[in-house]
Amino acid sequence: MAFGFAPQTTAEAAPRLSRILGADEWAASAIPSLNSPRDLVKEVCDRHLPSPSTVVIAVLDPTGRTVASASFAAPAGSRDGWEHRNAILHHLRRVIPHDLRLRSPVRTAVLLVCRDGIPGWTPADGAWMWGLRDACTLHGLRCGAYVTLTSHGWLVLGDGRGGRRPHAGSWSERAARGGAVLPVGDGVPEAVRRHVAR
């Protein structure tokens, strides 16, 4: 009698591959629109200085004001919505209490992913969308907008609003111009401040 793990079959692997949301499915999800996406993207980018492979999760109150945010490095090589959900949920738990005690969500989570490539939807974005939606459910939040930040600029997927600035290279441009050091206590790590000031 032999003991061990049976190799994963194609049928068993299918659920892992399905943990993404297609562009049409996302657009049909009744995601609440951002009141002023340009202002939100600028605020989030000024606070977290995202570079490619950086993910920023922001939580908005009912008026659309940012009440909490966190940035983290995207898991290297992962395109699994399950792993993305876990990463988002971990950082949500660090910055804001859950709202599971409420009958319906009042706060909204928005995800900004800074990455290389085209600004439009990719399967990797679909995995982040799946992760955002599931993390919001588990934390008692409304699932909000998904924003990509590339060298072309920013784009809110699902509603098509976007702009050329800020973009994925904005912070290196600021550093080249001798940009100012961010004030202490702004929630930006000291190592990042030193990088911006260089």
Rank of each mutant, 00 (worst) to 15 (best):
P123F: 03
R107V: 03
P15W: 02
G162L: 10
A68E: 13
M129T: 06
R198H: 10
T9E: 04
S170A: 15
L89M: 09
A76Y: 05
T63V: 12
L132K: 04
L92G: 09
G160L: 10
P189M: 15
S78A: 13
R85Q: 09
R93Y: 10
K42C: 00
R115W: 06
R165K: 13
I96H: 11
A175D: 01
P37G: 07
H167K: 08
R194L: 15
A175R: 15
R65C: 04
T122V: 12
S18L: 11
D61Q: 02
L34Y: 10
P75L: 15
P105S: 14
M129G: 08
L111H: 01
L21V: 11
P123K: 03
I88G: 02
T9V: 06
D61Y: 02
H84W: 11
E43K: 07
V95K: 07
A74G: 02
D24I: 05
S53N: 10
M129N: 07
T108R: 11
L89A: 14
D186A: 07
H139K: 07
W130R: 12
L141N: 01
S18Q: 10
W121V: 00
D186M: 05
P183S: 13
S36P: 00
A13R: 08
R101Q: 07
I118C: 01
G77W: 03
E12S: 04
F72G: 00
D186L: 08
S151N: 07
R164I: 10
P166T: 09
P183A: 15
A73P: 06
A176I: 00
G64L: 03
A191G: 15
V59C: 10
W121Q: 05
F5P: 13
P189R: 15
R174Q: 07
W82A: 03
V95I: 15
G64P: 01
P189H: 14
A28H: 02
R93M: 13
R47T: 04
L92P: 05
T63D: 15
P75E: 15
R165V: 14
V113I: 04
P105G: 13
D159Y: 12
L157I: 13
W26A: 02
V106A: 08
A127T: 08
E173F: 04
V156F: 05
A145I: 08
L102V: 06
E173S: 00
V44L: 15
A11E: 11
H48T: 05
G126C: 07
L49Q: 06
K42H: 00
A11V: 05
P105L: 12
L182I: 02
A13L: 13
A127W: 13
H98N: 14
G81H: 05
P50W: 01
R161K: 06
D24F: 05
D116P: 00
A58G: 01
V181S: 13
E173W: 08
T63W: 12
G22H: 15
R193F: 09
S33W: 06
R94I: 03
R79D: 11
P15H: 00
D46K: 05
T66D: 00
L60R: 13
V188P: 02
R38S: 11
P123T: 01
G22P: 08
I118V: 11
S69A: 06
L138N: 12
D159S: 09
R194W: 12
R93K: 11
D125S: 10
